[in-house]
Each structure stands twice: as C-alpha cells, then as structure tokens.
Simulated scan of single mutants.
Amino acid sequence: MLRRRMLIMLGIVLLIVLVLAGYKAFSVYTLIQGFSAPKPPINVAVATASERPWQSRLPTIGSLKALQGVDLSLEIAGTVKDVQFQSGQKVKAGQPLVQLDSAVESALLETAQADLGLAQLDFGRGSQLIGSQAISKGEYDRLSAQLQKNKATVNQLKASLAKKHIVAPFSGTIGIRQVDVGDYLASGTVIATLQDLSSLYADFYIPEQSLPKIAIGQGVQINVSAYPAETFTGTVSAINPKVEDSTRNVLVRATLANPDGKLFPGMFASLQVILPDPQNRIVLPESAITYTLYGNSAYVVAQKKASDGSLEKDDKGQPILIAERRFIETGERRDGWVMITKGVQSGEQVVTAGQIKLDNGAHIAISDDKTLTDKNSRPRTD
C-alpha cells in the first residue's frame, strides 16, 4: 500500500516536471523565433546628391570704418564762448561748431594792424626819399624789413584768431558734444566726433596664400549682428601692398554704400568675398551630414547584396534597401547646403532624416512623410 502511494506521488512529480520543461522549451522557442524574424525597415527621408554651379567664397571677418571720420579737438587752449551745433546733427563742410573767447587775440590783432599801417606809411616815404638820396640804403632796407615783420605779425594773429573758431572740416554727422559754454579747454581736448556715413569701408585680413584670389572690383557680401536678416554688398577697393610680418596676413579694404545710415563705424562685420569662375560641385542638404570629432559622414542608400554578389529582394520582388555609412569630406556651407568634395557621387540618394535610428547596414524604407523631414531637418553632431 505504501509502495503504491509512493509510485503515485512520483508519477505526479514527474508529470509536473514534464509540464514545466515543456513550457520552458516553448518560451525559448518563441524567443528564438522573435529574434530570427526579420525586423521591419526604418523609415527615412532621402535627397539626391546633385551637381550644381557653386560660387566659391572666401569667408573672413573685419570691421567697418567711415569714409571720413575724425575726433574734433582744439589746437590751442581757450574758454568756450558759444556752441553752435546739436548732438547728432548733420553738418556741412565749413559750418561753425564752437567759438572760443578771442577778445585778447582780437585786441592784439588791432594793435598789430595799427603798427602795420604805420610801417606802410614809413616805407612809402622812404621809397620817395631813397630816390633823392635823402636817406641811406641801410635805412631804406630797415623800413622794408619792418614792414614785412608787421605783415607777418598780423598774419600770425589772424591764424591764431582763426583757431579760436572751430568749423566742420567736411560734411557728415556730428556725435555727442563733450563741451559746454564756459568750459576752459586745454589744447587737444576732444569736442565731438564727426563721421561721414554716406559710404563706409570694411577692412579685413586674408591669409597670404589667398592673395591670388583677390582682385580690385570683386564683390563682397557683408553681414552685421545688428541686422542679421540683411546682407550688404560692396566691392574690393584696395589691397595693402605689404604682408604683416607677425600674422602673414594681408589687409584688404572694401567700400560699400550706406544710404540709409544703418551701418556705423566700428561695427564687427562678417564678410564673404565672391571669388570668380563658379564651378559645378556636388551638394547635399546640411541635414544629411553627421558631424563628429573623428570625421564627417553620411548614410547613402544602397541595395543589399547576397554572399554571391547578387541583389537580395523582399517577398514582393523589390530590392532590399540598406543604409551605408560613408565618411565624406565637406567644403563650404551655405543656405542649408554643403559642398561635398569626396565620398558621395552625383545621383546617389542620401538619408536626410531619421539617421538617429540607423547603423551601418540597417534595413531602411524611403518615406514620403513630411513630418519626418521637419523633425529631423537639423544636422547631427554625434
């Protein structure tokens, strides 16, 4: 009886073990089938590498300078008697700006002019008397010299008096005034800045190896941070005939019009010199490029091949597409496009969106979903 019960219990345990083993085997089989099942393709957006005329440019940075610009300052000391301009006013050449107290110089000029008049009378009498030998030749020469001396004194005082009267040396816009009526100003004191803003210079440096690419009259595109959406155009007007010893750079000057007065001297400028002879170059959308420290790359659409070299096809008879990662060499970037110098041929399709899910050899499907492109339009920087 006891033996029978033991056999029954042993049979029950054996049955439980078999059931558990079967369940485990079924789970492992299901997992294996899941791994071995083909993964669905990854949807990506693509663009075709195309060859188009590419206008090469030489990027550089520089600063803006006025066509004419000075800091108005005094040559001689004096007290301000009258300020004849307003801050920010547009002035004409020769327009009075500041009048210094000139009472002393005016009085000295009157004295000198009186002495000059007397010297002219004495010289006139001497000229009549020298003919009749009533005076000596030496006396006549003394009278002549005295006349010249008095004339020089008058001219000197007139020049000194003129320096008390400050006028605009050229037409332009005057800055914020730095003086007031009654101020005593030493020589060299700055009154205000005067800038001619009708046209501006853009001075920039280029490396000496780029010098053969630059010529007078070439176009220049200029951007400033104050107006990021606007591009100003100018032309190369001068090339410095000297290479800087310390930097091996050459100073170049471009001239640009400023009719609206938007640009000010001293602004930082980002420039692009338009180089001649545009050439056909392969270009890609900037979103197709993955930028990394060890090199730039892009995913090119390729067809999967079997071990014998034949093209593999899906159950619908269509070629199986894969993403082939290639390292590329890039050139200039402009307006969302990148020039490709090596790694991609014209006519090849390149992934422009969906790269974040890809790896080399990944199965892909080309999608027409516009949202995919919109969400992944920025270049990757893995």
Rank of each mutant, 00 (worst) to 15 (best):
R4P: 14
L7T: 06
I8W: 14
M9F: 14
L10N: 01
V17A: 05
L18N: 04
G22I: 11
G22W: 12
G34E: 15
F35N: 05
A37M: 11
P38Q: 03
K39C: 02
P40R: 02
N43C: 02
T48N: 03
S56N: 09
T60I: 13
A66T: 06
L67P: 13
D71G: 11
S73V: 09
L74I: 07
A77N: 12
G78Q: 06
G78P: 12
F85R: 00
Q86H: 14
Q89W: 13
K90R: 10
V91K: 02
K92C: 07
G94C: 02
L97E: 04
S102I: 10
E110N: 06
E110Q: 09
D115Y: 11
A119F: 09
F123S: 06
G126E: 07
G126N: 05
L129Y: 10
I130C: 02
A134T: 07
S136N: 13
K137S: 10
K137G: 11
Y140T: 05
D141Y: 12
D141L: 14
Q148D: 15
K151N: 14
V154G: 04
L157A: 03
S160W: 13
L161G: 02
H165L: 04
I166H: 05
V167Q: 03
A168I: 01
S171T: 15
I174N: 05
G175L: 15
I176E: 15
R177V: 15
G182R: 10
D183Q: 06
S187L: 03
I191H: 06
A192S: 12
A192V: 14
Q195F: 10
D196Q: 06
L200D: 09
Y201V: 07
D203F: 07
D203T: 08
I206R: 07
P212M: 00
I216T: 06
G217E: 09
V220F: 06
Q221L: 09
N223K: 10
N223Q: 11
S225F: 13
E230P: 15
F232S: 01
F232H: 03
T233M: 11
A238F: 13
K242C: 12
D245Y: 15
D245I: 14
R248A: 11
V250A: 00
A254I: 05
L256K: 08
G261I: 10
M267F: 13
A269S: 03
V273W: 00
P278D: 01
R281C: 05
L284P: 15
I289M: 07
T290S: 05
Y294F: 12
N296P: 13
Y299L: 03
V300A: 02
V301H: 02
K304F: 03
K305Q: 06
D308P: 14
K313G: 09
K313N: 10
D314C: 02
Q318C: 04
I322Y: 01
R325C: 12
I328Q: 04
V338F: 06
V338Y: 04
K342D: 12
S346Q: 05
S346H: 04
V350N: 01
A353L: 01
I356S: 02
K357Y: 04
N360H: 11
G361L: 01
A365T: 08
D369V: 00
T371I: 05
L372P: 09
L372E: 01
N376Q: 00
N376Y: 00
R380D: 07
